[in-house]
Design a protein around this nucleic acid. Structure first.
Lengths: 338, 338
DNA sequence: TTGTAGGCGTTATCAG
DNA sequence: CTGATAACGCCTACAA
C-alpha cells in the first residue's frame, strides 16, 4: 500500500494530528516541526488519500457534469469552460453522458450522488417537471447550463444564452438587410430551449416588422446536416414563391441547407441568404462563410461552474436564479443585402 | 446526513454485516432476511457510500482520462468511446485536460493518483522519456491512446491507429489515381505520432513508387485551418512546378488548403487534388467533399478502455502491448484521376 | 503548540 | 447463516 499519514508521523517523530495540521495548514505548528514533517512528506512522497478525507469532511472536491453527447462540439466547449474553473478551484470533473434520455439522466444523478460529488452541472434536452422534481430531491446543488427547465424554471439555477433574443436578433439582422420572406429551419419541437424558444424569437422578429410568412416556410429538423438538407428541400419544393433568406437554428443544418441549394442551383447568398446559429468552428471553413449567431459555450460553461461554486460555498444569499450569456451576430458572406 | 448501513441494520433488526452481504451479494443470506433488508433499503432509499467502500476495498470504480483538449472533436469522440465501455462496467470517468503541456500532465497524473482512480487512459502529444518514467512510477495501470510513446514505447500499453501505414495508404491512393507530384502538409515536428509518423508514411509511399519531390513540397502546420492555408500558400508560391495533389495530415488543414486554392483560383480537384486525414464530421460538409482517411476515434477510445479494464483485472497475462485500430481510405470528390 | 482518541461508512475476518 | 469487531486513512474535538 501507499504511505499514510501514520508513516509520516512515525518517521518524523510527531503525532498524526501534527502531520494533519501541516498538510491542511489548519492550526499553527511550530516551524521546526513543520519543516521536519514537510521533509519527510517530501522524502516519502506522501499524498493524502482523498477518499478518507472525503469520508470525514463530506466533501470530495469533485463535481459532475451530465451532457447528452460529449463528442458534440458544443458540449466539448462547454466542458472545457467548466473544467477551466474547476481546475482553478482544485476540483476535478466527472463527465457523464445521458444521450438526452430521461431515465439515463435520473440514473446518472443517482450515481453521482453515491459518489458524493459536491455538485452537478446539468445540460439536458428536455428538462421537464419530473426531472426538476428529481433534482430538487438531491442533497447536492445543481446548476442547469445551456438548457433551461421547461417547467418550474424559476426554482432552478440556470446559466443559458437567451435563445429567444438571439434568434430575434438574427432574424432582425436579416430584415435589416432587406429580407422580407424569411424561412425557418428549427430544432425538434420537444427541445425547449433550442427548439421552441428559437422559434419564438423568429416569430417575434417577424411580428415586430409586420411580416408574415406561410406555414410552409417553417420546418423542424434535428440539428443534423441531413435534416438541414431535407428541410431546405421541403421549403424549396413546397413553395411557389421562395424565401429570400433562411434562418437555420444551428450551423450544421445551415450547411445542409446550403448543400441542398447548391444541388438545386440556387445561388447562396444572391438568391437565398442563409443564417446559422452557434458560430461553430466550421462556420468559417465553408463557402460561402456562414453568417451566424455566436454563442460562447466555453463562457457559458465557465459561468455555470462559477455559479455552482458559489452555491456550494453556502452563502447562497444572492445568486440570481437565471443568468444569460451574451450572444453576438456575426456577419459573413452567406447573407446578402437585398 | 444521508442514511447509512447502520440505519438499515437497525431498522431491519439485523447486523450491519448482513446488510453489507445483501448489498454486495457476497455470501449467502437467508431469503427472509434478505427480503427484509431489501425492503428497508428500498423504503429508506439507501445508497452505499462509495468513498467508505473505496477506502477499504482500495478500488473506486473510477478511471481518469487525460487529453490535451476536450473541445477538440477528436478527443470528444475518443472520450465518448471510453465512456461507453466505462458505463458498461459500472465505472465513471474523470476527465482532465492537459493542454499537451508536460508539467500539467505530470500534475494530473499525480492528482488522479491521490483520488485513487483505478486506472488512466492517456492521450498526449509528446510522450517522451520523462513522461514514460513518470507513468511507470505510478501504482495504477495506464494505457496510451491515439499517441504512442516516442521513447521506450515497448513498455507501455498502447492503442493507436497506424499513422505510418494510414498515411502510406492515403498517398498510395493518390498515386493510384495517377498523381506523381504530391505535396505534404504535416503536423508539428515534435508530434511523434501525428507529426513524424505520418511524414514517414508519406515518404515510404513515394519511395515505393520511385517518386521524388523537392523539399519545398513539404510543409509543417499545426493542425489548424490557418496553418493549412499558410502551408498551401507557401507551396503554391515557392514552386514553379505545382504538385497535382496534396496530402494534408488532418481534415482541418485540408480545408485551409482548399480555401487558399479557391482564393488563388486553382480548381480543386481538377488542378490540384486534396486528401485529408481523420474523416471528421466536416469532411462531407464542404465542397468539394473531402477524400480522407477515416479513423474511428470512438473505437480507439473503446478499445483502449477495454484494454485498461483487462489490465486492472490483474490477469494481465497476455495483453498485447500495442494494438492498432483499423483505418480506411474514404473516396470523395476532392481527389481527381489524372 | 502538541498528542490522544473517537468516528466517518464500509468491508472483511473471525467466532458462534 | 449471522453477528461482533477490527481495519481503511484521515480529521477534529478535547485534553495536556
Amino acid at each position: 500500500m501507499s504511505v499514510t499519514i501514520q508513516d509520516i508521523a512515525k518517521e518524523a517523530n510527531v503525532s498524526i494530528s501534527t502531520v494533519s495540521r501541516v498538510i491542511n495548514n489548519s492550526k499553527a505548528v511550530s516551524p521546526e516541526l513543520k519543516k521536519k514533517v514537510l521533509d519527510v512528506i517530501q522524502k516519502r512522497n506522501f499524498k493524502p488519500n482523498t477518499l478518507a478525507r472525503g469520508l470525514i469532511t463530506n466533501k470530495t472536491n469533485i463535481i459532475g457534469i451530465i451532457v447528452p453527447d460529449i463528442s458534440n462540439q458544443i458540449f466539448g466547449a462547454l466542458t472545457k469552460g467548466i473544467n477551466e474553473v474547476c481546475h482553478q478551484n482544485e476540483y476535478t470533473l466527472m463527465v457523464c453522458e445521458s444521450g438526452g434520455k430521461l431515465e439515463k439522466e435520473i440514473e446518472l444523478l443517482k450515481i453521482l450522488g453515491e459518489r458524493k460529488i459536491d455538485g452537478v452541472l446539468f445540460a439536458g434536452v428536455d428538462i421537464n417537471f419530473t426531472l426538476v422534481e428529481e433534482m430538487k430531491s438531491k442533497d447536492y446543488p445543481i446548476v442547469l447550463v445551456t438548457q433551461e427547465a421547461s417547467d418550474r424554471e424559476e426554482i432552478m439555477h440556470t446559466v443559458v444564452h437567451d435563445n429567444v433574443q438571439a434568434t430575434r436578433d438574427a432574424v432582425s439582422f436579416l430584415i435589416e438587410n432587406g429580407h422580407k420572406r424569411i424561412a425557418f429551419i428549427g430544432g425538434p419541437e420537444n427541445d425547449f430551449s433550442s427548439g421552441i424558444k428559437r422559434l419564438t424569437g423568429y416569430r417575434l422578429a417577424l411580428e415586430e416588422n409586420q411580416l408574415e410568412v406561410p406555414d410552409s416556410y417553417i420546418e423542424h429538423g434535428d440539428f443534423t446536416f441531413n435534416s438541414g438538407f431535407d428541410c431546405m428541400k421541403k421549403i424549396y419544393e413546397e413553395n411557389s414563391v421562395l424565401p429570400t433568406a433562411v434562418m437555420a437554428c444551428n450551423d450544421v443544418m445551415a450547411f445542409g441547407a446550403i448543400r441542398f441549394l447548391k444541388s438545386a442551383n440556387v445561388d447562396v447568398p444572391n438568391e437565398i441568404s442563409i443564417m446559422g446559429f452557434d458560430d461553430s468552428e466550421l462556420a468559417k471553413f465553408i463557402t460561402p462563410e456562414l453568417s451566424t449567431v455566436r454563442i460562447s459555450y466555453f463562457d457559458e460553461g465557465a459561468q455555470a461552474a462559477a455559479t455552482l461554486f458559489e452555491l456550494m460555498s453556502e452563502h447562497q444569499s444572492s445568486i440570481p436564479t437565471k443568468q444569460y450569456i451574451q450572444h453576438k451576430i456575426i456577419r459573413r458572406n452567406s447573407v446578402a443585402k437585398i
